[in-house]
C-alpha cells in the first residue's frame, strides 16, 4: 500500500515539474529572423586580412599556416621577387570542404594575415564553390576587425634602423605599451612564440623577420 501511495505521489510530482515549464519563457530563437550574436573568438570562416590604410594583404607567404593545417586545406603559391628578394604571394586557396575550423592557421600566423571570422553562413549548392581563392578571402575579410601583433625586434640580428622604437620591450610586459591597438590578452602568448623563433637560425625565418619589419 505504501508503495502505491509513493508511486502515485511521485507520478504527480513529475507532472507538476513538467507543468512548471509551461509558464517559462521559451529558449528558442527563430532563425533566420533572429540571429545569435557570435562571441568574438568564435571560429567561423577563414579570411585574409588586409592593411587598413593601403588595402594590401598582410600575408608574406611564410607558409606557416599551410604547415600547421592538419587537413591540408590551405594551398599557397608564391615566388621570390628578383629585385626585392622577398617572397610574393601568388595564390592562396582555402578548401572549405577540408577545413576543420580548428584555428591552428590563425595561431601560427605572425603577421595578422589570416583570421577566423565569426561568419558561419556560407553554404553553397556544389562543392567547387567552397574552394575559395585569394580575392574572395580578402573580400570577405575586409570588414573583420583585428589587431596588429606586437613585433619584437630580434635581439640576435643587428639591424641599423628602427631599433630605438622598442628597446625596452620585454617579452612578458603587459602594461604601458604605446601602441593603442594592443589587446592585453594576446600579448603574453605572442612574444613567447617569438622568443622561441628568434634564436633559431633557420634561414627562412630570418628572412621573414627582415621582410616583415620593412613592411611595417
Amino acid at each position: 500500500m505504501r508503495l502505491i501511495f509513493d508511486g502515485i505521489k511521485n507520478l504527480i510530482i513529475g507532472l507538476l515539474t513538467t507543468a512548471k515549464h509551461l509558464g517559462r519563457h521559451n529558449i528558442c530563437i527563430q532563425y533566420p529572423e533572429e540571429k545569435y550574436t557570435m562571441p568574438e573568438r568564435s571560429r567561423g570562416i577563414v579570411v585574409l586580412l588586409s592593411d587598413k590604410e593601403t588595402g594590401k594583404l598582410n600575408c608574406t607567404a611564410c607558409m606557416l599556416c599551410m604547415r600547421s593545417c592538419p587537413t591540408s586545406a590551405i594551398q599557397i603559391e608564391s615566388h621570390k621577387d628578383e629585385e626585392t628578394k622577398k617572397r610574393v604571394l601568388d595564390e592562396f586557396v582555402v578548401n572549405f570542404n577540408l577545413c576543420c575550423f580548428c584555428g591552428l592557421c590563425e595561431e601560427a600566423c605572425n603577421f595578422a594575415a589570416i583570421k577566423m571570422a565569426t561568419m558561419y553562413e556560407f553554404s553553397t549548392w556544389n562543392k567547387e564553390d567552397l574552394v575559395w581563392n585569394k580575392d574572395k578571402l580578402q573580400e570577405t575579410g575586409r570588414d573583420v576587425p583585428y589587431e596588429k601583433p606586437v613585433r619584437k625586434k630580434p635581439v640576435a640580428k643587428k639591424t641599423a634602423a628602427k631599433t630605438d622604437e622598442k628597446p625596452a620591450d620585454k617579452p612578458k610586459a603587459v602594461a604601458a605599451d604605446p601602441n593603442p591597438d594592443e589587446k592585453e590578452v594576446e600579448k603574453p602568448a605572442e612574444p613567447e612564440k617569438k622568443t622561441e623563433v628568434e634564436p633559431k637560425t633557420e634561414p627562412d625565418k630570418a628572412d621573414d623577420k627582415a621582410g616583415g619589419e620593412e613592411q611595417k
Binding site: R41, S42, R43, C102, P188
Partner: peptide
C-alpha cells in the same frame, strides 16, 4: 564558445597548457 570559439570540437587544451586565456 566564448573561450575557444567552438561548441563541440574545441582544440583548446594544447601541449604545454591551453590555447588562449
Amino acid at each position: 564558445e566564448m573561450t575557444c570559439g567552438q561548441r563541440l570540437t574545441y582544440n583548446y587544451i594544447r601541449v604545454g597548457g591551453v590555447a588562449k586565456d
